[in-house]
Nucleic acid binder design. Structure first.
Lengths: 205, 205
DNA sequence: TACCCGTTCCTAACGTCGTTATAATTCCTA
DNA sequence: TAGGAATTATAACGACGTTAGGAACGGGTA
């Protein structure tokens, strides 16, 4: 009975090898080197074989985008262990920019307008959820009630992306961008604390 | 004697027509339609003629990027006429995002990692300068001394780009992105005002 | 064992891209 | 008017994503 299951296993295995090869090419040589023929060569197949595992190049790239977000998610979870809510926020900012610096080509396709907007939103969702959790606990810790929570999250997310882009677009170095991101986050959080109607009594016991 | 000057004039004219045709294709049909052959067809020439005016496609695209920044600059200058320094800042934020929404494909190539980083910095400089002037007058109006002025500018620039990207990447609609940008700017400015060592005496006469 | 059918794979090809070589044509100048 | 430079188009090259066609393989049945 296990004859067909083995075939399926082999199929899944080559599919995985294709993704890994594509990922390796992307990270080491950039998006220009990421061609179907190159990937096929690396996994020792001919080009059309790739199309048995992916409908087209976009589908394969989407897989890399998903991988990138999973990677970012794991780094975010790591940063989320910081107990202090303020430092946690600045650490995630720094981590985000660091990711963009350490995986520039991955970061590039993760924010490539060519990939479908809905798909990108879908794979980015878990990462944004971490950000939401962190903002929730931060606002709770400081007795800050945000006028519009989702809006606040989108502002943070956009800000992080924008400042990370300064780095990967070559406007500033990555170290400086990390500094900028931390500073920007501190400023925004300070702004939110300040604009909260000054009901400034500390949380009663 | 004017025979050679006419030739030069014609040359310059064709060059300009190529740029305009390229711009039209880009804005109306997107970057995928922006091919040398298509542009050449639109100006009623064969493809190789384009290479008499531009070293390669990148050089032509760079011209479009420069055009985009000039366009953005003119809109910024318009927003800069607002007398109130605070409203001026939020207006520029709104204007930036609006530009990204009204010229999505132009905005895309203006921030395309494929175009040379140095060249992009160069053509973006005048636009950033406007932002710098506005921040200067804002901080003066509020007696705010920014710890690091350039850093503050880069934070603003990055934030605007990031939030505008939320729109053109399809995460949020353009109207919402404009709202986010204004809100983000207000928050950041509030943060800077707050963190300034509370020498809170109003500007003495 | 012999056949057969479905899967897997490769070669070849199509159309498009950016770009270049080559040749024809045009237009000014001497 | 003859010659030479500038201008133009045709054809081609290599690389891309993608598809068509057929060869090879491998397990289930006679």
């Amino acid at each position: 009975m296990p004859t067909s299951t083995r075939r399926a296993r082999e199929r899944a295995n080559t599919r995985e090898r294709i993704i890994e090869a594509a990922l390796h090419v992307l990270e080491t040589e950039g998006i220009a080197a990421l061609t179907i023929r190159r990937i096929a060569t690396d996994v020792e197949y001919s080009a059309p074989v790739v199309y048995q595992h992916f409908a087209n190049k976009d589908a394969l790239v989407l897989e890399l985008v998903a991988h990138g977000h999973r990677l970012m998610l794991s780094e975010f979870r790591q940063a989320a262990q910081e107990p202090d809510t303020d430092r946690r926020m600045t650490r995630i900012a720094s981590q985000y920019v660091r990711f963009a610096g350490e995986h520039p080509h991955l970061f590039q396709i993760m924010n490539d307008p060519m990939v479908d907007a809905d798909e990108r939103r879908r794979v980015a969702e878990p990462v944004i959820d971490v950000l939401k959790e962190m903002l929730t606990s931060w606002s709770a810790a400081h007795d800050v009630v945000l006028a519009d929570f989702d809006q606040a999250c989108e502002i943070l997310w956009g800000t992080l992306y924008g400042i990370a882009s300064l780095s990967y677009l070559g406007s500033v170095g990555n170290d400086r961008a990390r500094c900028l991101a931390e500073q920007a986050l501190r400023t925004i959080l300070l702004g939110w604390r300040t604009e909260t109607p000054a009901n400034g009594r500390p949380a009663s016991s």
